[in-house]
Design a protein around this nucleic acid. Structure first.
Lengths: 347, 347
DNA sequence: CACTGGAATGTAACCGGTTACATTTGTAAT
DNA sequence: ATTACAAATGTAACCGGTTACATTCCAGTG
C-alpha cells in the first residue's frame, strides 16, 4: 500500500485505487461523471495524500491557464491598491486568478514581465499607461493575448483602453484654479518622460494656461518621483521662492500631500496663502486639515471594467472595447478664491 | 516556408530550420553548445516569428519553475511596498521571479492562494504573519516547498520566521510613553483576532502597563481595520471622551496618522495636549507636522533576508533558519513629557 | 434472446518543451 | 590509413495532467 511515492501523481493514485488515470482526473475535474462509490474511494486517497494536482500539467492540456496578469508601475502608491482589489474581486468571481507584477516605472522591467506573462500563457494582460515599445503590443497580439490599457488612453485605435481622460481631468482642475482668480499656478507632477499620465496632465495644464493667456513659467513646474519626501521638498522650493505661486496643482495626491505638509512646516496657510488641488482622491486627503480638493479618479470602476473586459475576452472571445470612465473634481477645503490685493480687501 | 502554424512551437521551428527539436531547444537554453552557424539560422527564425517558449512546458521537464510566491495581507498599506520591492530586487538578481498575491486579511483567501501556489509548484513561499491553519504548513512541507514567515514570529520552532520582535518593539514604545510620565495611554491597533502582529503588540502594551501597575482600561483601546478614515474616527472618539488619554500608542502608522489628523481637526495640540507614537515609520510620518515618533521596522532588511532564505532554499536546498531583525524607536516631534495637570489650555 | 443505448471506466494520444543517450561528423595523432 | 576523441546534432523518453474515443457492462425493450 505505502509504496513510497517520490511524488504523488494521478497515475500513482490511480494505481492505489485500482482505477485508471482518467477516472482520477475525472473525479477531480468532473465529479458527477464518476460513480459515487468510485468517487468516494478516490477522494479519500486524494485527501489522505494531500494531493494537489500540478497546475502546469493541468492547464497544459486544457489550454486554459485561468490567469490574468496585471502590471502596475508601483505598489507604493495606494491608488493602485483599490484598483487592484477591484480587478481581483471581479476575476475571482469569474474563477480567474490575478498575477500582480510591479514594473517599478522601468520600461525594461515591464518588458521582462510581459515576456514572462506570455511564457506562462496568461489569458489576459491589464497594463498601466499606453506608452511602450510597439513591439510589445505586437507580441501580445501575436500570441492572441487580450490586453487593455488603463489609467490613460492611447491615440492608437488598435490599443484598447479603459481609462478616464487625464487631459480633461487635469484641465478641469487647472481651469478651476483660474476661475478662482489664480494667475500664478504651480504644477507638481510625475516625471513626464517615464509616465504618460503625468505627461498628459502636464500637457493639459499648459494648454489651459495658454487658452487663458497665462504665461507658462517652467520655474513653477516641478516633475518629481512619487515619493512624499521628495515631493514635499520640491513643494517647499516652489512655495519659498521670491515670487511664489498662489495655487498649486499637484497631478497626484502623494505630491499634494507633500505640498500640504510643506506648507504646514513652513507655516503657510492653506488655502488662505495658497490653494492646492490634488489628483486621485485618496482616502487620506479627506482627513487631513484642510481636506484636499482633488480629482476623483474612478479606480474601482476602471478596475471592474478592465476585469470584465478580460473575462469577456478570455471566455467569450469578445474583443476589448475602449471605454472612458468619468472623473470628478471634488472641491474641499484646500482651495479658495485668491485673496484680493490688500487695497480692496479690508472691507 | 509559410506553413501557417496554428501555434509556433520548437517542433515547428525545427522543421522550418531543418534541424531537430533538441537543437532548437539548445539554441535557446544553452546557446554555446550549438554551432554558431546553426545558432544564427535558428535565432533568425525565432525572431522572425516572435517565438516565446511555453514556460509551463519548459518548467515542466526541468522541474524548476523559478517562481517564489509572496502573500501579503493587503496592498493598501505602503509598508508592504518597500518590503515587496526588497524581495523583488533580491530575487531578480538570482533570476527568480516573484508572484505577488493579496490575501486581503482573509484566511479563506489565503488558503486558496497557497493552494494555487502549490499547484503552480512555486519554489518558495513568503508568508506574512504566523497564525494560520496548521494544515497549510503541513501542505507546504508535504510538497517540500520552502516557506518563511515574516512580520511576526511563530512560537513553533518548526515554522521558520524572519521577522522583528513585535512584542519587544511595542513594549519599548509603550514604556517610552510611561517614562515620559504618561499614565493614561490609549491604544489603537489592528484587529487582533485576524492579525497576529496587532495581537502581539496589544499583548505587549498590556503587559507593560501591568508591569508599571497601570490599570488596563478597555475604554481607551480600539481595534480597527487599517483604513485612515475609520482610524481617524476611532481616534476622535478616544480624544474627545470625558477622561481622554494623554498619550496614544498607535500600533500602525496609518492609525497614527489618522490620530494626528483627528487632533488637527479637533484643534488638539500634538504633542502638547497629547503624545502620539506610531509603528512602521512610513516615509510620510517624517513630513507631517509634527513629525511622528514611530517604531522603525526593518522592512527592507527583512525582505532581503527572506528573499535570500528562499534563494538558498530553492537553489542549494539550505533549510530556512529563523532570524530576528531589530527595530528602532525613533523619537520625533509628536511626543513630549506629560504636561502638568492644568495645561489643557482653554484660550 | 438479441438488440439498443446509456453509464462507467479504460486506453492512449497529446500538450510543448528538456535532456539523457545515441549517432554522425570532423580533426588530429599515431 | 587507422584510431581516438571531441564537437554537433538527432532520437525519443519523459514531465503530469486532460480528454477523445473505445470498451465494458447492464437495464430496458421488442
Amino acid at each position: 500500500m505505502k509504496d513510497a511515492p517520490k511524488s504523488v501523481t494521478i497515475r500513482w493514485l490511480a494505481q492505489q485505487a485500482g482505477v485508471s488515470v482518467a477516472t482520477v482526473s475525472r473525479t477531480l475535474r468532473h465529479p458527477d461523471t464518476v460513480a459515487p462509490q468510485t468517487r468516494e474511494k478516490i477522494l479519500k486517497l486524494v485527501n489522505r495524500h494531500q494531493f494537489v494536482p500540478d497546475g502546469r500539467a493541468a492547464t497544459f492540456s486544457s489550454k486554459r491557464t485561468g490567469v490574468v496578469g496585471l502590471i502596475v508601475p508601483t505598489i507604493s502608491n495606494s491608488i493602485y491598491a483599490e484598483f487592484t482589489e477591484a480587478i481581483q474581486s471581479r476575476l475571482q468571481a469569474a474563477d480567474l486568478s490575478l498575477l500582480i507584477a510591479n514594473a517599478n516605472y522601468s520600461a525594461g522591467t515591464e518588458r521582462d514581465i510581459i515576456r514572462k506573462l506570455i511564457e506562462s500563457r496568461v489569458e489576459g494582460v491589464i497594463l498601466t499607461g499606453y506608452k511602450r515599445d510597439a513591439a510589445l503590443y505586437d507580441l501580445l497580439r501575436h500570441y492572441r493575448i487580450p490586453f487593455v490599457v488603463t489609467w490613460s488612453t492611447s491615440p492608437k485605435a488598435s490599443v484598447p483602453a479603459i481609462s478616464f481622460d487625464n487631459r480633461a481631468a487635469a484641465a478641469e482642475a487647472t481651469e478651476m484654479l483660474i476661475k478662482l482668480g489664480h494667475q500664478r499656478i504651480g504644477l507638481i507632477c510625475g516625471i513626464a518622460s517615464i509616465n504618460d499620465r503625468a505627461a498628459q496632465r502636464l500637457e493639459a495644464y499648459r494648454s489651459v494656461l495658454a487658452r487663458y493667456k497665462i504665461p507658462f513659467d517652467p520655474e513653477i513646474v516641478s516633475e518629481q518621483p512619487f515619493e512624499i519626501e521628495v515631493s514635499s521638498e520640491a513643494a517647499s522650493r516652489l512655495i519659498t521662492m521670491k515670487n511664489p505661486p498662489t495655487a498649486l496643482f499637484c497631478a497626484n495626491d502623494i505630491q499634494a500631500l507633500g505640498a500640504l505638509f510643506a506648507c504646514q512646516r513652513l507655516k503657510i496657510r492653506v488655502p488662505n496663502d495658497i490653494s492646492i488641488i490634488g489628483f486621485d482622491d485618496l482616502p487620506i486627503v479627506r482627513v487631513v486639515s484642510p481636506p484636499l480638493s482633488s480629482v476623483h479618479v474612478p479606480a474601482k470602476r476602471m478596475g471592474h471594467a478592465a476585469a470584465d473586459a478580460m473575462i469577456d475576452a478570455a471566455r467569450k472571445n469578445i474583443p476589448v472595447k475602449s471605454q472612458i470612465v468619468g472623473t470628478e473634481l471634488i472641491m474641499r477645503g484646500s482651495t479658495m478664491p485668491i485673496a484680493p490685493p490688500r487695497s480692496r480687501s479690508k472691507s
